[in-house]
Design a protein around this nucleic acid. Structure first.
Lengths: 221, 221
DNA sequence: ATCAATTATTTTGTATACAATATTTACAAC
DNA sequence: GTTGTAAATATTGTATACAAAATAATTGAT
């Protein structure tokens, strides 16, 4: 797999944006960023085009690129859609899950348990991601899988915040067990419902964290 | 609203791709296209970046941009997801529809009826699009609305083909009436179900058209 | 001092130039 | 004729240059 510089720039910028390096609405100065990455404006602008397409920045002609952090309402909306996509994946996966797929899911769930026991949020985050991705893939719908992954990634930083809430990791784990049981039993409706709730709860829990989210916005020096 | 040249290029290219101007997998020659649009490669490449993000072309580093027509399986998958998004919009819209929203929907549905009676597929297509967009917007979830519109647009050329099938327009119209009734009665489950079927049927009907779809691929001279 | 108008400075958008990598062609060996 | 290799050609990726537009600074009038 080859890479162009622009790809690395896009990834870096993406990371910088989601980690809150820029304030909402802040303009991304092309020359400054180009210098920062030691490239010319050309590959940088190409990266901005891609970021704009994925909604991380807004491109205003003759004005520039402005970072776009989803507001509270939009985040709730995104979680609402994520819940539905997740439910859909669950419903399909319950019907189509193979023995091997189930085994992988159980392993991923076990990984979550271990991470929870050791209290390692980073490990839990990774195992959790694997668990969900496996369900997406088990849906047998590759377009759905890619869309689910895309939105999952977009919501990543906000979901991550939630693990800091006391007891959330345990609750999340129990929800995983429920989903796994439904999938293992081949029960589409139950699988869909448990996964929908699993994500919907994230949207609700998110409420509690808004204060801290709004207060610490950083600016690139 | 201002435009950059690149935006116009993106739109034109998008149109050219979905209307089948290029074969699947065909490489888009940057210099040739740049000449075609009377621009340099710079804005053209920026347009390609955007197209790649929306999945219309695949960018292979040091190789070029290749148009990506969804295959049969992927199209079915996309219709499956569209059905779910549509159902979700319907469910939410049934709960949140305002008087004014209902009125607009009725007008759009009436527009469909007129177009159907006159047998004008173009008019029907436009009225139909308006009908669906109104439902998306009535969901009250702006993120969902934009995602639904995005996928709707992506499937546009394939849906359009279906209207050519004998009797499809009448059937589609009846499905619209059912959905409208459910929405008007504020019945979320029925609205969701009727819209899900409405789209799912499109996916199924699509089967019949694959032969013709596969046979006429054109190449840009 | 405030505001408007004009000039200077930035900054974006695009063209062009050039370097690095792929692809094609030509040619030789078998 | 096929295969392998080397030169030639074409194509992508990036830097630089410049034109057009937007923003900031300056000046002048009230």
């Amino acid at each position: 797999m080859t890479f162009r510089r622009a790809d690395g720039i896009r990834e870096s910028l993406e990371q910088m944006i989601v980690t809150g390096e820029f304030a909402d609405g802040e303009r991304l100065d092309e020359v400054r960023l180009a210098e920062h990455f030691n490239v010319s404006r050309t590959p940088l602008r190409e990266a901005l085009q891609t970021l704009a397409a994925s909604g991380l920045v807004t491109l205003i002609p003759r004005r520039g690129a402005f970072v776009r952090h989803p507001g509270f309402v939009e985040l709730i909306e995104m979680f609402e859609v994520m819940a539905e996509l997740e439910a859909m994946c669950g419903r399909l996966a319950a019907r189509r899950l193979t023995d091997k797929g189930l085994e992988q899911l159980e392993q991923a769930a076990a990984g979550c348990e271990v991470a929870m026991d050791t209290g390692n949020t980073n490990d839990y985050y990774r195992a959790n991601e694997r668990f969900h991705y496996l369900i997406y893939e088990a849906s047998g719908n590759s377009y759905l899988t890619s869309e689910a992954k895309r939105l999952h990634k977009r919501l990543q930083p906000f979901r991550r915040m939630q693990l800091l809430v006391r007891g959330r990791m345990q609750q999340s784990m129990q929800e995983h067990r429920d989903a796994l049981t439904a999938l293992s039993n081949g029960n589409p409706d139950t699988a869909a419902e448990s996964l929908r709730n699993h994500v919907a709860i994230q949207g609700e829990k998110f409420n509690d964290l808004m204060a801290s989210y709004n207060s610490d916005k950083k600016i690139i020096k």
